[in-house]
Design a protein around this nucleic acid. Sequence first.
RNA 1: GCCGGGGUGGUGUAGCCUGGUUAGCACAGGGGACUGUGGAUCCCCUAGCCCGGGUUCAAAUCCCGGCCCCGGCCCCA
Length: 434
Amino acid sequence: MVKIERVKGTRDLLPEQMAKRRYVFERIREVFELYGFNEILTPTFEYTRLFQLRSGEEVVNQLYAFRDKGGREVSLRPDLTSSVARLFVNQFQNAPKPVKWYYMANMFRYEEPQSGRLREFWQAGVELIGSANVEADAEVIALMVESYLATGLREFTVNIGDRLLLDEFAKMLGVDDDIGLMRLIDKKDKMSREDFIASLRDFGLNDGAVGKVLSLIELKGKPDEVLPKAYELFTSEVAKKELKKIEELFELLKAYGAYNYALIDFGIARGFDYYTSIVFEAIAPNDLGIGSIGGGGRYDNLVEVFGGKPTPATGFAIGIERLIPILESKGLLPEVALRPDVFVVYIGRDLEIRLKATEITQVLRKSGIKAEYDLQGRKLRKALDHANRLEVPVVVIIGRKDLAEGKVTVRDMKTGEQRAVEVEKVVGEVRRML
RNA sequence: GCCGGGGUGGUGUAGCCUGGUUAGCACAGGGGACUGUGGAUCCCCUAGCCCGGGUUCAAAUCCCGGCCCCGGCCCCA
């Protein structure tokens, strides 16, 4: 026999898991819409060129890329930001600003699966296009905070950094390979201080520069303690302006009520090289080996890269497969009952009785009661056994004797109490018992 | 792409080191004992050694390769 397994890095989602996921998606969706974001969906695959344009040739290694029968080079989407930017350029450049979109969709990245990382995974995200104001950054960061809160999560922080400041920092140190430096800085938490210093030296920094990097990564915490030091470290006008922006951002977050969850961490670079200014990532403490549970930032030149008018934009995405296990481990996901409310059982195989069972099941369903009847044709004893296993609270028993008097039997499976009721009163009786 | 640990019915496992009955057990599933009353008991049935190759008289067991899972690295758009 041929056994076909799942493709590496993919998951089957079973009813219990789907119910929980749907719960999480719904909570997030409510908040997204409350903030005035509207749902969109773009194709699952795009021209590979779209993703190359944004991030260069190297990225193709992590794409699910293939050639279709028409010879087109296409790729499954690794995220939705590129597609959104394409859509915006194609059709929405003249739409009233800002454009506020959200999505909940699956993404594909060809990487080695490990904790919190699959090859197909889902993200719930938003993009806010057309505003360069810090209010837009604050709006999406506050929305991200509210989204996590809506799922019941309380222990998390949104750590905020700034790519522009990192660029300024690299310039200040006279480093040409600013991306390389950022990658190094991004890894600071993964190694010891000594190893970090050693790798900075390997990178070619002198003692003074290493010291500056060390003071940069010290810039973590609440703005009132971090910003004064930051103003000392950064000297350029551009940097000072950006710091002023961060200062305002946190004032705005106070007004949004999201301040308590926000921290500065100027060591955050985030991988995506299209980010241009404020970037952020959400972290929730856990012992599951899961790092960030979401991230985002400002990408002011992506639209232009895709051939549009220069248009500022910002957004974020929440990693569902990272969020859910954390919620689960904290007991924040509701138990969902997949069982029916009523199980209808009939006695004997007479067509007349079977038809009656079907009709009564439909009547129950029409009145909004989750009802099933025994499609397997079990004998009464087995049927009750089955209902018990399903943990169905109420069973309706339909048999010739009762029916002769126009009645059926309604049984409470917990107490074992039961009574014969008129067929027309079944719905009322069942509802009373639920 | 690299490194480490794994893979036995649907699920959880025993057996593997030290090759040798019909691969055992539990749960789940189907049927029956029991013809209008469940949660119990008993009986029967269904169903498995990830795939391929090698060694051997003989492979779930030893060896090689692949696939997949768990974790880490790289990378993380």
